[in-house]
Design a binder for these strands. Structure first.
Length: 891
RNA sequence: GGGAGAUUAGCUCAGCUGGGAGAGCAUCCGCCUUACAAGCGGGAGGUCAUAGGUUCGAGCCCUAUAUCUCCCACCA
């Protein structure tokens, strides 16, 4: 048996233990049909990433579930991997190339990809090493990467199948364009922020202008887009403009003629009631343009610089410079009516924050609401029929609301780092046939001309959407896929419900014909002490590795889970970490205590100590702790089942500290025959705690001898990781003993409180007389009153004559007398007792009142009424105890 | 504009299907009691945001109001 160090120093063993686990292959998952499968796929961190607080939280929660299920005997697989994170990684590599003075264009696609893979080789493994420090029990032999061969095959298969079904199409639409990243982004990658802007009112003169009204006034927040205007729209019922519908206007600064059209889309009461229509630069205008067959006039290039094609004299100007120039020119021409300040929401790129430019372009889309083959409808049905269960209702609502309003998903990106779209275009301008296929065709299957592959790659979330089955072998029909799919639960933050969770659900249903996971366990974000999001720009983030270094991985994990509830974010504070570390220290010392106690008392045979724990040999305090432990097991398991991980952790913590250490150890300190119970409960607590604090529990567990309980042989595995999670046992249900001994605990607490209030020196021994109905209970507890309450010479009787000058302590089950001689101020004692009497009377009155309320007695559940009666009895006993005591005093 | 959540001790948060308000930290008092001062024992501290309502009974359910947070939409 290994002796535990005097101080708890996690650094000394966390690394060593993790290496042992890995070496012994405990993380390895096997397809074992004799066991039930339990599988979680990791939310793959970006290869660009460094472990941050969010990862720490996310992976702690997954590891808790996986370790718990593994101990319950499931065949568990926690499948790890990383995400290529196309846009983020590409940006990072471009940035790193700057140092060498090289651009993407300089080195070309192949050169760039070579660099990217090299970059991945060097940095891609960092986060994996960091996850190991946390204690994550992933099956590293199955580690995957969204851009590896298998995942790429899955992406191809899915893309091609969806295309063939008509669920992926290519089309020209107004999409969100990031002029900085120079790629399209999806709707959800566009983040809106309210900004102060202006509303420019501009005159658009009539082409054949004459008479009173010779112009229409329009208002815009983006005047530069007027270069691309192809109409002005008014409401068909708007009397101000009715007569102008169909007339032509002269688009200022360009001289182009554009029509006045009527469309219901226009709100008569907003602005001037006339809207400039720029189909190429506004999604709503695009729709209007479609209805009226308006031409698309794209005025910007991919950096949001005004193009030569349609920009006229503004060509070459960056969009905001163009805006300035255009406004100035309009003013010079007397066409600028007014400029109003205007607050409006402006969309920014999620990646870089640059204001996105809505822009018509040819892109690939996943059709979400196909009339016959809708992807969104089944994804909602599985929630409604219960096949997919959200652990927290409120996030289910978020999901459903999002799914109901879903629009087609723009999946093509003008990037190089990612899955290249498997579409090939015929170069024969008369043919223009598109071939979507796995392997590049030699020539156009239709006309035989040369073909060229689409330059674009797919949204990084496209491959993430397939993660739960691509990592298990799809499109192959592997044993893993059959055994582990659907996975059991996905654990992730609420911020990526639309990006990831929703998309996994509809792709899983489409390609695997089943949900990707049964449960969705959503957690919050980690915030700083002031409740702010942790971010690089604020510099308020914590580095989990620093925390591990300083306090240990167990303390970090416990901090994460202790504050977590399904509904809220976790607020980080160093205080919480120290509290967790202190808890670990407490446990460590309890274990050390046991080791010292065992020393010399028992011979350990080959590291094994088999002590039978038999019911007959148990003392009341043993039964008391076993009974409480047994209930703890049941509750903790139920909490874990319901994904209330924070509650479960709290209960284990409270038991270890508040029951086992504070009471049980103190109670049995001097007993040697308590060792089996001490060991048994320690063993069980360690197991309950192991999923939360894997390292310290392993270190201690291996340093403890094994104990068998109630005749059951103990099968000692070599690691707590693969030991059996405790189960509730009827043999350990000692309700009566527990309730009885609670009375002793209650009286000890009361005596301590009184002593403390009266400033009795802790070391001072006082003799004690107890008046109680249950003589044996208190008589047999003499030792406890001495050790824990400093009371000696215990006498117990059914009726006791109060000694001179004694303090009287009353609980519902007993009266205790402590003669304290000169320490007693009789008058004060009477005063105190009178106060207590008053309170006791009120108690009795309160409960009696309730019980004499016919409404209560007739309407409340019988059990409730019963409880109140029991309470009343207790209160009455206490009251009479105080009354008696006061009487004695007054004599 | 629509929706969700929050509001409980100085701080961070628990409080299960309604049945006399809890923990940790901080604070105060007393203790180095040989497992643990990263500790032990004890105390103080709350008209559970506000106003109504339902009920025998409301921190919990309903309706308004206030403040905060977040999500969705994006009338140019």
């Amino acid at each position: 048996m290994k002796e535990l160090n005097k101080t708890y120093s996690p650094k000394d063993f966390e690394g060593r233990i993790y290496a042992e686990w890995e070496e012994k292959g405990y993380f390895r998952a096997v397809v074992d049909k004799s066991k039930k499968p339990y599988c979680i796929v990791i939310p793959p961190p970006n290869i660009t990433g460094q472990l941050h607080s969010g990862h720490a939280l996310n992976n702690t929660l997954q590891d808790i579930l996986i370790r718990w299920k593994r101990m319950q005997g499931y065949s568990t697989l926690w499948l790890p991997g990383t995400d290529h994170a196309s846009i983020a990684t590409e940006a990072k590599i471009v940035e790193s190339m700057k140092a060498d003075g090289v651009t993407k264009e300089d080195i070309g696609r192949d050169g760039f990809l070579k660099r990217a893979w090299e970059w991945k080789r060097i940095y891609g493994g960092t986060i994996v090493q960091q996850l190991k420090k946390l204690g994550s029990s992933c099956d590293w032999e199955r580690e995957r990467f969204t851009l590896d061969e298998g995942c790429s095959a899955a992406v191809q298969k899915v893309f091609i199948d969806l295309y063939n079904e008509g669920l992926i199409y290519r089309g020209e639409r107004v999409i969100n364009w990031c002029p900085n990243c120079r790629t399209s982004i999806s709707d959800i990658e566009c983040e809106y922020e309210e900004k102060d802007g202006f509303f420019w009112h501009i005159k658009y003169p009539l082409a054949d202008g004459a008479g009173q009204v010779d112009f229409i006034e329009v208002a815009t927040t983006r005047p530069e887009t007027m270069l691309g205007d192809t109409a002005v729209a008014v409401h068909p019922e708007d009397d101000r403009y009715k007569h102008l519908i169909g007339k032509m206007l002269l688009l200022p600064l360009t001289g182009r003629e554009i029509p006045v059209i009527a469309d219901e889309y226009v709100d008569k009461d907003f602005g001037t009631g006339a809207v400039k229509i720029t189909p190429a630069h506004d999604p709503n205008d695009f729709e209007v343009g479609m209805r009226h067959q308006l031409p698309l006039v794209n005025v910007m290039d991919d950096s949001a610089v005004i193009n030569a094609e349609n920009g006229g004299k503004y060509a070459g100007l960056e969009r905001y410079a163009a805006r300035k120039a255009i406004v100035a020119d309009l003013e010079a021409e007397g066409l600028l009516v007014k400029v109003e300040p205007h607050k409006h929401n402006v969309g920014g790129c999620q990646r870089c924050g640059v204001v996105v430019e809505p822009r018509a372009s040819l892109q690939w889309f996943v059709s979400m609401n196909h009339p016959e083959k809708s992807l969104s409808v089944p994804a909602m049905e599985v929630v409604r029929d219960g096949r997919l269960h959200w652990a927290a209702k409120r996030f289910e609502n978020v999901y459903m609301q999002w799914m109901e309003n879903i629009r087609d998903w723009c999946v093509s990106r003008q990037l190089w780092w990612g899955h290249r779209i498997p579409a090939y275009y015929c170069l024969n301008s008369g043919c223009e046939h598109v071939t979507v296929t796995e392997t590049a065709p030699e020539a156009c299957p239709k006309c035989g001309a040369k073909v060229v592959q689409d330059e674009d790659t797919l949204d990084t979330w496209f491959s993430s959407a397939l993660w739960p089955f691509s990592t298990l072998g799809f499109p192959e029909k592997t044993p893993e896929l059959e055994y582990f799919y659907p996975t059991n639960v996905i654990v992730t933050g609420y911020d990526i419900i639309p990006f990831w969770v929703a998309r996994m659900i509809f792709t899983g249903l489409k390609f695997m014909d089943d949900v990707p996971y049964r449960d969705v366990f959503i957690h919050g974000l980690v915030r700083d002490e002031q409740g702010r999001k942790m971010s690089k720009s604020l510099g308020n983030g914590i580095d989990p590795l620093d925390v591990i270094d300083k306090y240990g991985a167990d303390a970090l994990r416990m901090t994460m889970v202790f504050g977590v509830s399904q509904d809220s974010d976790v607020r980080w504070s160093e205080n919480k970490v120290t509290a967790s570390r202190n808890f670990a220290n407490k446990l460590w010392n309890a274990a050390r205590f046991i080791q010292m106690k065992i020393d010399g008392q028992l011979t350990i045979d080959n590291g094994q100590l088999t002590v039978a724990l038999e019911s007959e040999s148990l003392q009341i305090e043993d039964k008391w702790v076993l009974s409480k432990f047994n209930r703890l097991v049941r509750e903790v398991t139920a909490n874990l089942d319901g994904y209330d991980l924070g509650v479960a952790a709290g209960k284990v913590h409270d038991f270890i500290w508040g029951v086992y250490c504070d009471w049980y150890i103190e109670l049995v300190k001097s007993r040697t025959d308590s060792i089996p119970v001490l060991l048994y409960v320690m063993d069980g607590m360690l197991k309950l705690l192991h999923p939360f604090m894997p390292f310290i529990t392993e270190e201690i567990w291996q340093a403890m001898p094994r104990v068998s309980v109630l005749g059951c042989d103990y099968d000692p595995p070599e690691s707590i990781m693969v030991s059996r999670f405790p189960e509730y046992s009827e043999h350990l249900d000692f309700a009566e003993a527990e309730a009885d001994f609670d009375k002793v605990v209650e009286l000890i607490s009361a005596i301590r409180a009184r002593r403390s209030e009266m400033n009795v020196p802790p070391g001072k021994r006082v003799s004690l007389k107890i008046e109680a109905a249950d003589l044996r209970l208190f008589e047999s507890s003499a030792d406890f009153f001495e050790k824990l309450a400093g009371c000696i010479n215990l006498e117990v009787g059914e009726t006791v004559i109060p000694p001179e000058d004694s303090v009287i302590i009353v609980t519902p089950s007993a009266r205790a007398f402590l003669p304290m001689g000169e320490l007693i101020d009789k008058a004060k004692e009477i005063e105190r007792l009178e106060k207590e009497l008053d309170k006791a009377r009120k108690d009795v009155e309160f409960i009696s009142k309730k019980l004499s309320n016919t409404g209560f007695v007739t309407k409340a559940p019988a059990q409730q009424v019963e409880n109140e009666r029991a309470k009343l009895a207790k209160a009455q006993e206490k009251l009479s105890g105080i009354e008696k005591s006061l009487e004695g005093f007054r004599k």
